[in-house]
């Protein structure tokens, strides 16, 4: 860029199984399991999805493989996982939070100029504006947090805070508190790959800070762009359908 900073403009997307489960994991029957006579089976409400409802394995994007949950927090994570359909905020098309927005299976666009750095995510039309002048502690909690950026050499470092406690890290019940702080680092690996790192600190929930890292890939299609994914419309039947004058079969 004219100001000497790396130019991150473009459409980016992660390619990983992190949106299913950020931890190291083998493939499993389903995101929502029940006990079967010979081991876990898909829970009843997701049974008919068959192989489409199964979870692909992954080496995990968490450094060391697992999230260092405190015992109570690990218990809540397990409950969340068992009750996934009712609890995962993605099911209801809620804003995804950070870092989850980065590695959902949707592209996002970075729009950067001399003074501004803006993220537009396809999923749920989520957005983030990065402040380069720290406005101080967030004045209110939010789903996407308050992002304050700075440059460390050619790396963009974004400190994100001011979250609510409603977002997860993936579809596997991984939660946090409103005290979460995330430090993201965006560094070019090649002209079309960016290494993404995020360090999570939340002493109420984790025994120590933990870090994820994964590459982001530039979408190379000539017509790459964000499509509309206003999923609010797609979850209306789920969230409000029972209140129709003539409810449909549910």
């Amino acid at each position: 860029m004219a100001n000497g900073k790396p130019d991150f403009n473009g459409i980016w997307q992660a390619v990983s199984s992190a949106h299913f489960d950020v931890e190291r994991h083998m493939a499993r029957h389903s995101l929502m399991l029940r006990d079967g006579p010979h081991g876990p089976l898909p829970a009843v409400p997701v049974l008919r999805l068959g192989a489409v409802g199964a979870v692909p394995g992954g080496m995990g994007v968490v450094e060391g493989g697992m999230i260092p949950y405190k015992p109570d927090a690990a218990k809540l994570r397990d409950e969340n996982r068992r009750d996934w359909l009712d609890r995962d905020p993605e099911i209801k098309c809620y804003l995804p939070g950070v870092p989850r927005a980065t590695y959902m299976p949707f592209p996002f666009q970075i729009v950067q100029n001399q003074a501004q750095f803006f993220f537009a995510y396809e999923y749920a039309g989520a957005v983030r504006d990065i402040y380069f002048k720290d406005p101080g502690p967030a004045e209110t909690d939010s789903w996407m947090g308050q992002s304050v950026g700075k440059w460390e050499g050619d790396t963009l470092v974004v400190e994100v805070s001011g979250f609510n406690d409603q977002t997860w890290f993936d579809r596997a019940g991984t939660h946090h508190s409103s005290g979460l702080k995330v430090v993201e680092r965006y560094t070019y690996l090649t002209p079309n790959h960016v290494q993404y790192e995020a360090t999570m600190t939340d002493p109420a929930v984790f025994t120590r800070p933990w870090k994820i890292s994964l590459p982001l890939y530039r979408r190379m299609e000539k017509d790459a762009r964000l499509m509309d994914f206003k999923c609010v419309e797609f979850v209306e039947e789920l969230v409000f359908g029972e209140h129709r004058r003539k409810p449909l079969p549910r």
């Binding site: 403009n9 501004q116 803006f118 957005v127």
Partner: peptide, 17 residues
Amino acid sequence: VQTKDTLVILNEMVHDA
């Protein structure tokens, strides 16, 4: 937010970009 090939127009209400 303007670049040479893009203009993002963020509307405050319902965060439509």
